[in-house]
Simulated assay, not measured.
Amino acid sequence: MSDDGTTSAGKRCHSDELARILSHSWSDPTATLLVFSVRPAVSCELYVERLRALISAAVMIARDVNFDDDSEIALDSLPEWFRVMSDAVSAEGSSNYLIADLGDIWDPAEWIYCFDPDLRAWTWWDVTVRADGVAVWIDTLGEPHVPHGELLWALYVSGADRVDLPYAEDAAVWVDETDIESGPD
């Protein structure tokens, strides 16, 4: 165990997840993944860029902090547009989240605690492009229902017009999806 309380396996898991966030996954997934169908209010490319920036920053913070420590967690590495809702895209996404009646607006300092590895029941798997938007795939180790409110918030404020609630999908379907770097056929 390291000085920060993490194991080498824990750091490897974060490293694997970060690699999948930043680029299309080429790993073999578990048999079943959860998928969110997202209709972005901006281009799919901009949406994915914003979402990857936000989730990767959160995973890096989670990798580097001790959530059991009472000190305040530094949020500087989260995108500014997320921390202060400083642009039209995040403001519109926040409004769309409220319209969807998914709960209250999340404070970034509270939101980041949902990335505590001891609490988070999902890991990022991939994002793929579809004719009507994008699909965000998460690995829940086969669990059909996991807490995911923090992810819904991230999906909306990254620029979603609409997010369908997740459903379980066989990993074989993900294999046939179009990765964002290739674009739709």
Score class of each variant (00 low, 15 high):
residue 13 C to N: 14
residue 1 M to Y: 13
residue 145 H to W: 12
residue 42 V to Y: 02
residue 149 G to K: 02
residue 164 D to V: 11
residue 25 S to K: 10
residue 55 I to W: 07
residue 185 D to F: 08
residue 93 G to V: 03
residue 156 Y to F: 15
residue 160 A to H: 03
residue 18 L to G: 01
residue 63 R to H: 11
residue 184 P to Q: 14
residue 120 R to I: 14
residue 77 S to W: 06
residue 133 G to N: 02
residue 149 G to M: 07
residue 162 R to T: 10
residue 51 L to P: 02
residue 85 M to W: 10
residue 128 T to A: 13
residue 154 A to S: 15
residue 124 W to Y: 11
residue 150 E to L: 01
residue 81 W to D: 05
residue 19 A to K: 13
residue 65 V to F: 08
residue 54 L to S: 05
residue 166 P to H: 11
residue 72 E to L: 09
residue 48 V to A: 02
residue 13 C to R: 12
residue 92 E to I: 11
residue 128 T to Y: 05
residue 13 C to Y: 13
residue 159 G to L: 00
residue 163 V to H: 07
residue 85 M to T: 14
residue 2 S to V: 00
residue 125 W to V: 00
residue 60 M to R: 13
residue 21 I to D: 06
residue 131 A to D: 15
residue 182 S to M: 13
residue 93 G to Y: 10
residue 93 G to I: 07
residue 185 D to R: 08
residue 100 A to V: 11
residue 55 I to V: 15
residue 98 L to P: 00
residue 162 R to L: 10
residue 166 P to K: 05
residue 120 R to H: 10
residue 165 L to I: 04
residue 52 R to K: 13
residue 3 D to Q: 05
residue 93 G to W: 05
residue 87 D to W: 09
residue 153 W to S: 04
residue 95 S to C: 04
residue 11 K to C: 01
residue 86 S to N: 15
residue 22 L to H: 10
residue 168 A to L: 08
residue 2 S to I: 07
residue 55 I to A: 01
residue 43 S to E: 06
residue 46 L to M: 01
residue 100 A to G: 14
residue 51 L to Y: 15
residue 86 S to I: 09
residue 28 D to M: 11
